[in-house]
Amino acid sequence: MNPLLAAYGALALGIVSEVIGTSLLPRTEQFTKLGPTAAAITSFIVALFFLSHALKLIPLGVTYAIWCGVGMVLTATVSVLVYRSSFDLPAVLGIILIICGVVMINVFSKSVAH
């Protein structure tokens, strides 16, 4: 398997794990509910494990930018779908700008090893 593909796969798994952990936070009820708390903490540990593997080949700044950008967009999506949150136009435009930034880094930046 291509090592760079494996690094991006690890980054994707880390992002998904982080989004799961973050999405579970409201269900922990300020860490008073044991099941959701344990699941959230486990998700964060798994996320950091995969993030550390992604960092073997992808520079820290690029990895973290992708991690934050994609994580924010996915967490916002979960917020809308699961918790019935709503966003106004500036929030939607901000999310679109985040997506554009992640695409710009991956497609045009020479900092990313392609």
Rank of each mutant, 00 (worst) to 15 (best):
R27E: 12
V62K: 05
M104H: 13
V16E: 04
F49C: 08
I66D: 05
S111R: 11
E18A: 15
G61R: 04
L89D: 02
V80D: 09
P26F: 11
A38C: 15
I95K: 02
I105T: 00
V73S: 04
W67G: 01
A39Q: 13
L51D: 04
G69W: 03
V16F: 11
F31W: 08
I105W: 03
A12N: 05
L51H: 04
L13I: 14
T75W: 04
P90M: 12
V92K: 09
D88I: 08
L48M: 14
L13D: 02
G71S: 12
I95P: 03
I45F: 14
V92Q: 00
N106F: 06
L60W: 00
Q30F: 13
V16P: 06
A113Y: 01
T77S: 11
H53Y: 12
A10R: 01
F44S: 06
F44T: 03
L11G: 02
A39Y: 12
L11N: 01
L60P: 08
P90C: 13
I66K: 04
I95G: 12
A54M: 05
F50D: 09
C68M: 06
K56A: 10
K56Y: 03
V16S: 10
D88Y: 08
V78G: 05
I95N: 08
L24M: 09
L81A: 11
L57A: 07
Y83D: 12
A76C: 06
S17I: 04
W67H: 01
P3C: 10
P90W: 09
A65P: 00
A65W: 02
S86G: 13
K33R: 15
C68G: 05
R84D: 07
V78Y: 04
I99P: 02
A12S: 13
W67F: 10
L97Q: 06
T22V: 13
H53I: 13
S86M: 12
V46F: 10
S23A: 12
C100A: 15
G101I: 08
A54I: 07
T28W: 01
G71V: 13
M1N: 09
L25A: 07
C68S: 09
V102D: 02
P36T: 14
K56H: 10
I96Y: 00
I98C: 10
L51R: 01
G21C: 09
T22H: 05
P36A: 07
Y83V: 11
W67Q: 01
V80W: 14
A6C: 12
A6M: 15
L5H: 15
S23Y: 00
A7T: 07
W67S: 04
L24H: 02
G61M: 08
Y8V: 02
L4I: 13
A91E: 14
A40H: 05
I105Y: 01
A54R: 03
G14A: 11
I98M: 12
L60I: 13
Y8G: 02
T75G: 00
L4C: 05
A10F: 13
S86A: 15
I98P: 05
T28C: 01
V107C: 00
G14F: 10
F108A: 15
I41L: 14
L5C: 07
H53T: 11
G14M: 11
F44D: 10
L13P: 06
A91K: 15
G61Y: 08
C68P: 00
L93K: 01
